[in-house]
Simulated assay, not measured.
Amino acid sequence: MSDEKPICSAKGCRSDAVWVLAWNNPKIHTPDRRKTWLACDDHREHLSQFLGVRGMLKDVVLLTEWEARQD
């Protein structure tokens, strides 16, 4: 297991990730497939809007909640 903290997926951002944005591209992914981007508090809304206007955003959850789901 890595000691590195997850960082925000926004271009150039090195802040700790707090949120998971689950998405899929319906043109290329099956409906149950989930890709993820990570976001800090400052970039959560921007990244959510980017995916949302493209119809790809499926869920936004706290990173701690996402990790608990994966166990």
Rank of each mutant, 00 (worst) to 15 (best):
V60K: 00
C8G: 03
N24P: 08
A39L: 01
D41E: 13
E45M: 01
L51W: 03
G12P: 13
A22K: 02
N25T: 10
S2A: 15
M56R: 06
R54E: 12
C13M: 03
W37I: 02
K58D: 05
D32G: 07
N25S: 10
G12C: 02
P26M: 06
G52C: 11
A17D: 07
S9F: 03
D3Y: 14
A39P: 01
E4S: 15
T36M: 11
V20K: 02
A39T: 05
D3K: 13
N25R: 06
V60E: 07
I28D: 10
Q70P: 08
F50E: 08
S9I: 05
W37T: 01
L21R: 00
L62Q: 06
N24I: 05
L63H: 07
E67M: 09
Q49W: 12
M1Y: 07
R44A: 05
A68W: 05
R33A: 15
D41Y: 01
R69K: 10
W19Q: 01
A39V: 11
L51V: 09
A68E: 09
L21C: 05
S15H: 09
D16L: 07
M1I: 15
M56T: 12
M1A: 10
D42C: 08
E65W: 08
W66G: 12
G55R: 04
W19H: 02
H29F: 12
V60L: 00
C13N: 10
Q70Y: 15
C8I: 00
V61I: 04
K27A: 13
L21G: 00
K5N: 09
P6A: 09
L51Y: 06
L38G: 04
G52I: 01
P6G: 09
D16R: 04
Q49A: 15
T36Q: 05
L57R: 05
W23T: 08
D71G: 15
D41N: 03
V60W: 02
H43F: 01
V53Q: 12
V61N: 01
R33T: 12
A17T: 07
H43W: 00
R44Q: 03
N25V: 15
V61A: 07
D3G: 15
T64I: 10
A39D: 04
K35M: 12
E65A: 11
D41P: 00
D42Y: 09
Q49L: 14
I28N: 13
L47W: 01
G55H: 14
A39H: 03
D59R: 10
R44E: 03
A39M: 00
L63S: 07
C8H: 00
D16P: 11
E45T: 11
P6R: 08
I28F: 05
W37R: 00
K27Y: 08
K11R: 11
G52R: 02
V18S: 02
I28V: 11
T64L: 06
P26Y: 06
D71M: 10
E67K: 07
L21N: 00
K35A: 12
H46F: 06
W66Q: 04
D71I: 07
W66C: 11
L57C: 04
M56P: 08
N25M: 10
